Amino acid sequence: MTITFLGTGTSQGVPVIACQCEVCTSADAHDKRLRTSVLVEGDGKVIVIDSGPDFRYQMLRQKVMHLDAIVFTHEHKDHVAGMDDIRAFNYKQQSPVDIYADERVQQALRREFPYIFDEKGYPGIPQINLHTIGLQPFDVGAVRFTPIEVMHYKLPVKGFRIKDFTYITDAKTITGSEVAKIRGSKILVINALQKEDHISHFTLEEAIAFAQEINAEKTYFTHISHRLGRHAAISKELPPGIELAYDGMQLQI
């Protein structure tokens, strides 16, 4: 099974258009971070976790020709805003795309995209099959997802474990019972927003501490603000077994 990082960045911080910092002006492709999302391919399924504002370009850039499902972590705009662009897959595949989200996220999707859920069925709107998830494991075809609840300040957010791969964005605190679901992962992906303290995200120091607690064979940091610094510079500060993820990076699980 292949995991591709479609995006490793975040909306946090000064917009790139107005910023002249060393990250935003960097020529290093590792510093060109779109909003956080991953592509999961294997066991006969093509699945995306989160469809943020960059979703359309991410799918074009990665040359994704088929999409079975989107699994949502939470309802913030940088994770759901691109869902409308599944309509191209509907047209090509002549079939709906499966959407997996908890009840709170579904309510947000209905507010954000009311026309998708309109009973009149306006022609050309995205076609979806909506599936409700909670904290129990669920299957997308033969791919089993184990939800992991983390706290994004006061908002519960879902991470997911697939086999020995755990993917978490937007975490600030994780209870012991949920940490137990992560232990034994060979690959951990966790958010590391910036060095300065933040109310709803792990800082670099906190992410390193959590990675060392879990002690996966490899840990990759994602949901990276430009405030963290350039990929090359930060990489030199990381302990063995921990790396910054970058857009287009692929893992085998």
Rank of each mutant, 00 (worst) to 15 (best):
S185F: 13
Y153A: 13
I174T: 01
F55T: 06
Q58G: 00
K92N: 09
H74I: 09
Q94K: 12
D54W: 01
I70D: 12
E149H: 10
D102M: 15
I86T: 05
G134S: 06
K181G: 09
I133Q: 08
M151I: 08
K163I: 03
N90F: 14
E119T: 08
D85Y: 12
E178Y: 10
A142I: 10
H76G: 11
M151V: 00
P137N: 06
I168S: 03
Q93S: 02
P123I: 04
K92V: 14
K154V: 10
D68Y: 13
Q127E: 13
I148E: 05
I133A: 13
K163Q: 09
V80H: 11
I116P: 09
G121R: 00
E112H: 10
Y91T: 15
D118N: 10
A171W: 00
Y115F: 15
R56N: 05
D139N: 14
G82Y: 01
V140L: 15
E103P: 05
Q106F: 12
T169Q: 03
A101V: 00
L109S: 00
K186S: 15
F72T: 03
P114W: 04
F145C: 00
S51P: 13
R104F: 00
D85C: 09
R111N: 02
I162K: 12
P114H: 07
H152D: 07
Y57N: 05
G134L: 13
D164S: 15
M151N: 11
P53D: 04
V157K: 00
Y57S: 08
I162P: 01
I128Q: 10
Y167P: 01
K172P: 09
V105H: 02
G184W: 10
I168P: 07
R61Y: 06
D164G: 05
